[in-house]
Design a binder for these strands. Structure first.
Lengths: 206, 206
DNA sequence: GTCGGTAGCACGACCGTTCGTGCGATCGGA
DNA sequence: TCCGATCGCACGAACGGTCGTGCTACCGAC
């Protein structure tokens, strides 16, 4: 999520107002991220999306021009939400151990609060497109790379000895907690993740 | 994978021979697990499966009676393969730290060798059905529960202090390595996983 | 009057599913 | 030893439905 700021979808503005089409587009994409987090980006069908939003299929389709473009836009929208929910809150503190800890806690909260109803949007979509080459997979992979890079840089700023290794382990704990919670309704997994993180992430007043 | 032995699909046998239909069924399921590990259990379409196997769609369908039954049979087939590839080889050594280590190494090898072309079958399918209630989800969740239970029992037998916590962390490392490998072609992730495991899993001659 | 935004409608392809049929092996009775 | 009945298995054709994708027309704001 290094390109955090540019990932935020900014509405087209005229005289300070948001155009009508752009507003519809936002509604579409917000719902699209919710559906995709549960049923995947392939399970996200244009007809179903249109029905749920009380919009004609063709009217919705005109916004994107193809299913692939809808999927790409959905990934971008999910990134923007992720940045807002996890990254931005951590940037209020200066670089260092506290910021690293805020990123971890923010992520666990983002998963636990079900910002996306299916749990972490990116985990769902990564597994779906992991071995299916194409632009969507690349977009999804980029999101993961940027998030890892942010963690790694922050870990380095916190004085961690091996930031790449720590990043691997942190991501592993976070995603395992999300998986256990979504698949087994295992609420305790978040506590286990936190315990594992405490043993790894540099201490800070908590 | 506690019910390992019963999960193995045994062919119907008459006079020591395997009936024709059972053999076809095995071919279908072997291919089904491969497809599903890449495109998911929903992306696994009956028509496509039939085409790839040079079989009529209706003939294939008759073996299962419904798509859901095909999906369930595919999960069972994948369990049998997993047991053969990961669990059984570890059971050759007596309970203890070495068996635990063999399970970890076996899993990493199973992922790295791409026993299923899309990486770990269960990780792909867990993410897909994680928040979609139904019999398929239950079957997938059970597989994860049994695998975790096997790890936890083995960890306890190895004298680990907190087997549940260790199991959480081990599973996290294994799955994170698989994800990084599949999504980012990051071969080094297996080394990172092994490094993380060495710091956690009790030592044994390696 | 222009133009962005939405709706209606139809298309070809593919989906899971059902049906009737045919072929080959097996088996029981003459 | 033959022969008809039965069974397992696979086939092709077709069903209703949904998919993504076009084309055309209307409608409302500037």
């Amino acid at each position: 999520m290094a390109t955090a700021s540019t990932a935020v979808t900014v509405g087209v503005v005229t005289d300070g107002r948001i155009e009508r089409g752009e507003q519809t587009r936002r509604l579409i994409l917000r719902r699209a991220t919710e559906i995709a987090s549960v049923d995947g980006l392939e399970g996200l069908s244009i007809g179903r999306l249109a029905t749920e939003l009380d919009i004609s299929k063709s009217g919705l389709f005109a916004h994107f021009g193809s299913k692939e473009e809808l999927q790409l836009a959905t990934v971008r929208a999910a990134r923007a939400i992720f940045v807002e929910e996890v990254v931005r809150p951590a940037l209020v503190v200066p670089p260092g151990a506290e910021r690293l800890w805020l990123l971890c806690e923010g992520w666990l909260s983002y998963s636990r609060r079900r910002v996306f109803p299916g749990g972490c949007f990116f985990q769902a979509v990564q597994a779906e497109f992991g071995s299916r080459p194409g632009r969507v997979r690349d977009a999804v992979a980029d999101a993961g790379i940027d998030w890892g890079a942010l963690l790694e840089v922050t870990a380095a700023e916190a004085g961690v000895q091996d930031p790449a290794q720590l990043t691997f382990e942190v991501v592993a704990f976070l995603e395992a907690a999300n998986t256990a919670s979504v698949l087994h309704d295992d609420h305790a997994a978040y506590d286990r993740a936190r315990a594992a993180l405490r043993a790894r992430v540099p201490a800070v007043r908590r």
